[in-house]
Design a protein around this nucleic acid. Structure first.
Lengths: 215, 215
DNA sequence: CTTTTTTTGTACCATGTCGAACAAAAACGT
DNA sequence: ACGTTTTTGTTCGACATGGTACAAAAAAAG
């Protein structure tokens, strides 16, 4: 157990990297949804032929569930980093929303929005496991906001009588509206404005009446 | 033109009512999404055989677009009624969210969430027309909120320096999070709480510190 | 009653889809 | 070098899917 030696396995080496293959599968699902993505599409996107794909990830559904897990975990890590308690609450929120927008609008590509909103939300009615994972993912993001808000409250950055749980849900609501609207054709600029308005509401209006001039 | 006499058309009378057929098609799409709903599913749900369906609505995509139009129009009407200027702003918002939750959680059925979030968001990346309609639909709902917020501002119900456009987007954000979370397995009760928190934030906290007791 | 017009219902077709069978290929161990 | 083990690539097959052709049916018009 101590030495995780890179012992090559016995048979023919695999021609793909599981992580990048999963990333490409995620991208394919992202564009057309679960039902709208065929195994041929996946096979082409992942550059794996069907049997390899089947052997590596199981059937289409298992592959999709793995893509969900990966997406949620990466989102969690991104939020954890963005919500560093060393940066002010408002800046942390802004960083989260910027991170989200960077994902929702890939460079030189059409707007993709959020993977969960764009694909899992559709499947969740018919597929219990997808619904479970989707719920767990959203709660994960809620919790990340909530932890940060609690810290802000402890540090006096946030009103003592604020409700961190409720505010966290609203911070997520901003995320959800960005996710949805980016898929509806809204521009990054307009979404940034919406995010800013949300941040102002969540953090509480500054003590003095805010002027339009920025510091 | 004056007398819209119920002149029966020439041939065999149709065995279906177009409006209810479209409603049933909407329901079918709602559960499985556009790609996940087959023509057989639709044919069964609408109680029309394939050629009749084709003759009445065109192909599957045209049928889906018609379902979108119907859904958006009904949503618009519902919001217009709920946001009656005679009722206080907070109550109006509450009525909108209650209306939404009533749609998202049909009696004696699984949670369906919002039709647009659950189905159009998936298709919108690949289908320009769906994306256009989705964006227009969301903006329609934004505008309904915005109109009401402007009225509230005129009546002094809302701060004079509030931004109706931004607040309307946030009111929609609450709607979007309800739509998404209802599909993720959240309970109506928890969503109601989220909606209430959103209403408090949008309407501004009441002058005195709010106590838990209700009038 | 016959003709005309429109809808219905059955059957069909080309294609797409998921999943699997099977042999060739590429590595390791002896 | 030879067998073992694992992955790859080709191929196949059963089935679902979107869409259509065509005759029977049901109503009005003549």
């Amino acid at each position: 157990m101590v030495q995780k030696k890179e012992k090559r396995p016995r048979g023919r080496p695999r021609a793909y990297d599981p992580e990048t293959a999963l990333a490409r599968a995620t991208d394919a699902f992202w564009r057309a949804g679960f039902s709208g993505t065929s195994l041929d599409d996946l096979s082409a996107a992942m550059d794996m032929n069907r049997p390899s794909l089947y052997g590596a990830f199981g059937d289409k559904r298992a592959l999709y569930l793995a893509a969900m897990d990966r997406y949620i975990e990466r989102g969690r890590q991104g939020m954890r980093a963005a919500l560093d308690e060393a940066v002010p609450l408002a800046d942390g929120l802004r960083r989260v929303y910027e991170l989200a927008l960077a994902m929702y609008f890939p460079q030189g590509d059409v707007a993709l929005g959020c993977f969960l909103v764009g694909t899992a939300a559709t499947e969740s009615v018919a597929d219990d496991e997808v619904r479970r994972k989707l719920g767990e993912g959203l709660r994960t993001f809620d919790r990340a906001f909530e932890m940060r808000l609690r810290a802000a409250q402890r540090q006096g950055e946030l009103d003592a009588d604020a409700d961190p749980v409720a505010l966290a849900r609203l911070a997520s609501a901003i995320l959800h509206t960005l996710a949805l609207r980016s898929r509806a054709g809204d521009s990054p600029a307009s979404l940034r404005a919406t995010a800013e308005a949300g941040i102002r509401l969540i953090c509480g209006r500054p003590p003095e009446k805010r002027t339009r001039r920025q510091s």
